[in-house]
Design a binder for these strands. Sequence first.
DNA 1: GTCCTTACTTGATCCACGTCAAATGACACT
DNA 2: AGTGTCATTTGACGTGGATCAAGTAAGGAC
Lengths: 260, 260
Amino acid sequence: MTEPKVISFETIRVACKNCTLSTLCLPVGLAPEDVERLDSIVKRNRPLHRGDYLFRNGERFRSLYVVKTGSVKTYAPSEEGGEQVLGFHLPGEVVGLDAISKEVHACSAKVLETSAICEVPFARFEELSGSIPSLQHQMYRLLSREIGHDTEMLLLLGKKSAEERLAAFLLSMSKRLRKRGLCPTDFYLSMSRHEIGNYLGLAVETVSRLFTRFQEEGLLNVDRKHVQLLDLRTLEAIVARAASDQHQQRSPEANHRPHR
Amino acid sequence: MTEPKVISFETIRVACKNCTLSTLCLPVGLAPEDVERLDSIVKRNRPLHRGDYLFRNGERFRSLYVVKTGSVKTYAPSEEGGEQVLGFHLPGEVVGLDAISKEVHACSAKVLETSAICEVPFARFEELSGSIPSLQHQMYRLLSREIGHDTEMLLLLGKKSAEERLAAFLLSMSKRLRKRGLCPTDFYLSMSRHEIGNYLGLAVETVSRLFTRFQEEGLLNVDRKHVQLLDLRTLEAIVARAASDQHQQRSPEANHRPHR
DNA sequence: GTCCTTACTTGATCCACGTCAAATGACACT
DNA sequence: AGTGTCATTTGACGTGGATCAAGTAAGGAC
């Protein structure tokens, strides 16, 4: 409110219709006037900084948040500082979807680096989506995609080795960066080794050793938080390996009773 | 059409408004005429039997399925018969939510025992939900709840020991049966040890040994697929234990830079 | 009933990864 | 530059649970 000039500049720059994420975040085929309506309910707060919270565990659910730039981690804290990292959220991704059902946040969302975040008050969004079919459709898809993603993580945590997990994590980052037009082979990790390990169900030491080993094997270069993927092909092979090598269970259910 | 009496009896019996699951499955406060509308799009097929599929991996997504009686497992098959069991679905639970986004089923759903299943064609449901706000709301909540549930599983697979996993699984069954008015301490497991192990990320042998040990410790009785939980309190303590014992990580992020 | 298949159990090893310990390196603050 | 803090790395070791290997028992076909 101190500098109208800045505000108006920001207003233009950040409108949904100009957002570089619009293909990720807006429903395809949304009529311009509907984009306006959506735009009008989205709040654009000042940039947040490392350590800031979007919301905390236990707070009442009010809004969804869309990462515009930067990154956010969500985690379920337990007493005594223990926590389970639930996810890392990159630009274009929505945070807070799990809280819709309970109306209370079951996890906390913390900003990992200076980030721009859009806030979408859910009650208003829900109302709006009732009158814009393609918005509703997009929301169903968004929620469903999140379920699909969690499902992949279940597979990862349930069946894969440490090596496969880290490879999958790196490729996931790579794929998501590519989708956003960022370099998929050369990026900074805004989270610590500790957080990566926690997320993947591994000890920090294991993560560290794997980075070292991957580097020795020429799959990547690491320097601190900077990662350069050198051999996507092999990394993919490592992830895919799980399917064939592992748990070679000769599906005893496959040929169940011929139940004529 | 041979016995109108039976047909009409069935028609009445299975209508949504008479369904014993309605409090689980219908939005609260749905107007009677809206229930009718929902009812009219729901298909009620003949009972399915063990081994039947609701849908398979790769098929085009058309409908959601609601388990009315019986149970269903969903799993992601990989070549050579390996698979990851994604979930077991009890009466009142919806199957297929993860396929909305991709329009193709990424997993298969197989019936574990003779079951009655309602089919809800999604396109028609989606349309309907656009004109019934509370139906839309319920759908958002349903999808969100699924995300929350997956999130719990992530924690389970990422951080908990074999013992904790099995205890959590049994308590989850118990809780869900209780919600449906069924006996929460005495039930049959319609899935094999193998499937339980797969679901929990454990080897069959480990599951078997744990059942034996839990029985020795007086926590439950098992006989084949029949389980009687004797000491819910202790089982809960085992699950909760994870929070305090495990990964006693003194959250290095907790007191991050005081970023004044 | 017998045979056969497959589920489950139990015991004996093995190893991937967690845990413990210590050294090193970044970065922030003075 | 000097110091303290904390992230990361590296090494040594221990263990939970996977894997391998029988043995047992239940259910289905005939």
